[in-house]
Structures are given as structure tokens and as C-alpha cells.
Lab assay of single mutants.
Amino acid sequence: SMGQARALMGLSAQLDEELDFREGDVITIIGVPEPGWFEGELEGRRGIFPEGFVELLGPLR
């Protein structure tokens, strides 16, 4: 894990590789696949999402 982030708003996945989450969910960050995107894990599910949907809870490791 690289850190954690809290969802500022919900994301309804449009693509298979995207992660669904609700506002307030705390997501474990597991990677940065490309600039502007995070890869995360939530409730046993993994996927990517735009960084603008979340606030980091501390610096990434």
C-alpha cells in the first residue's frame, strides 16, 4: 500500500478497469498507473480512478 485516500464524491465506473466508490469511502492506494490516475483497492475490489475524485490522507509512500 502507498497510502490512503478519502473519496470527495462518488464514482460510477464507466469502464471495467475503473473502481466504483461512494463519497466518504476510504480507498487504499496501491499504484499510480499514469499521471492523474490512482489504482486503488476497496472492499476487496481493485481498479483505477482519477485523482481529482479523492483527497489523500497523508503523503504517498
Rank of each mutant, 00 (worst) to 15 (best):
E41A: 02
Q4Y: 12
R22Q: 13
P59G: 07
F38E: 02
F53Q: 07
F49R: 06
Q14I: 11
I27P: 02
E41S: 02
L56K: 09
G44E: 01
T28K: 09
G47I: 00
I29Q: 13
A7F: 00
E43R: 11
E43V: 02
D20R: 08
F49G: 04
M9T: 14
Q14S: 12
E41R: 07
D20W: 06
R45L: 00
F21V: 03
E55H: 06
G58M: 05
W37V: 12
L19P: 00
R6K: 10
G3Y: 04
G10H: 15
E51S: 14
L42G: 04
F21R: 01
I30L: 13
E34S: 12
L8Q: 09
E43H: 15
F38A: 00
D25I: 02
I48P: 08
G36P: 07
G36I: 05
F53D: 02
F38G: 03
G31V: 04
G31L: 00
E39L: 13
P59F: 03
R46C: 12
L60H: 13
Q14E: 09
A13F: 10
M2N: 04
E34R: 14
E55M: 03
L11M: 15
R46L: 02
T28I: 02
T28V: 05
E17D: 13
R61N: 13
L8A: 00
D25E: 08
M9G: 03
L11F: 15
M2F: 10
G10M: 01
R61V: 14
E41Y: 06
E39G: 02
E18N: 10
G36D: 02
W37D: 02
R45A: 10
E17R: 12
I48K: 15
W37M: 14
G47H: 03
A5E: 00
R46P: 05
G44F: 00
S12V: 11
E55L: 09
L56I: 07
L8R: 11
I29M: 01
I48D: 00
R61I: 12
L15D: 13
G36W: 04
R46Q: 05
E39A: 06
V54R: 06
R61G: 12
M2C: 06
E51I: 06
L60V: 11
R6Y: 11
G47T: 01
E18W: 09
R6H: 01
R61T: 13
V54Y: 04
E55N: 00
G58D: 10
S1Y: 14
E51D: 09
G10F: 00
L60S: 11
G40M: 06
W37S: 05
L8E: 03
G47F: 06
A7L: 05
L19K: 03
G3H: 03
A13K: 10
G58S: 13
A5F: 01
T28G: 08
E41H: 04
F53C: 12
G58H: 10
M2T: 08
R46N: 09
I48S: 04
L42V: 11
R6P: 07
I27L: 05
L56E: 06
M9A: 12
E23R: 09
D16M: 10
L60I: 13
R22A: 11
E43D: 14
Q4W: 03
F21T: 06
L56T: 10
E39V: 11
M9K: 15
G58F: 10
L42S: 07
I27T: 08
S12E: 07
E18I: 11
F53Y: 14
R61K: 15
I29P: 05
R6N: 01
E34L: 05
I27F: 02
Q4R: 11
V26D: 12
A5S: 05
L19W: 01
G47C: 02
R61L: 15
G44R: 02
W37A: 00
A5I: 09
T28M: 06
R46V: 09
I30F: 09
F49H: 03
F21C: 06
E51M: 15
G58N: 11
R6C: 07
Q4V: 12
L60K: 10
I27Y: 00
A7C: 04
I27W: 13
G44L: 02
L56C: 05
A7D: 02
V54S: 01
R61F: 08
A13C: 06
L8S: 07
R6W: 09
L15F: 14
E51K: 13
V32H: 13
I27R: 08
E43Y: 07
I27C: 05
G52V: 13
D16G: 08
E43T: 01
I48C: 05
V32S: 12
M2A: 01
I30C: 09
G3I: 06
A7H: 06
G10D: 15
M2Q: 03
P59C: 03
E17F: 10
E55T: 08
D16T: 08
R22C: 15
G58T: 12
G10T: 15
S1L: 05
R22N: 11
L15K: 15
T28S: 14
G40I: 08
L19I: 07
G36A: 01
P59R: 03
G47A: 00
L19S: 01
Q4N: 10
G10W: 10
E17I: 11
G31F: 00
D16K: 06
I27M: 15
R46W: 01
E39Q: 09
E34G: 08
T28N: 14
L19F: 07
F21L: 09
E17Y: 13
L42I: 13
I30D: 03
A5T: 03
W37H: 02
L15Y: 12
S12A: 10
E34V: 07
S12P: 01
S12N: 15
D16H: 12
L11T: 12
E51Y: 05
F38N: 08
R61E: 13
D20A: 14
W37L: 07
I48A: 02
L19E: 15
L15V: 14
L15H: 14
R22W: 06
T28F: 10
D20G: 12
E55R: 05
G47V: 02
G31P: 12
M9N: 10
G3E: 00
G3Q: 00
L8I: 15
E34I: 13
F21W: 04
G47R: 01
L11Y: 15
W37C: 05
E18V: 09
E51H: 07
F49I: 05
E17A: 12
R45H: 01
P59S: 08
E51T: 07
R22K: 08
Q14D: 13
G36C: 01
F21K: 01
I29G: 00
E39T: 10
P59W: 03
L8Y: 04
F53G: 02
M2L: 11
A7W: 01
E55S: 08
G58R: 10
G31N: 09
M2W: 15
R46I: 09
E23A: 14
F38C: 01
D20H: 09
V54F: 01
G3K: 01
T28H: 07
E43M: 15
V32W: 00
E55Y: 14
A5G: 11
G10K: 07
R46S: 07
Q14A: 09
D16E: 10
F49M: 04
V32F: 07
I48Y: 11
V32R: 12
E23S: 08
E23C: 12
E39D: 06
E34T: 12
D16I: 02
V54P: 05
F21Y: 01
D20M: 06
E23M: 01
E55A: 01
S1D: 13
E17C: 13
E34H: 12
E23Y: 04
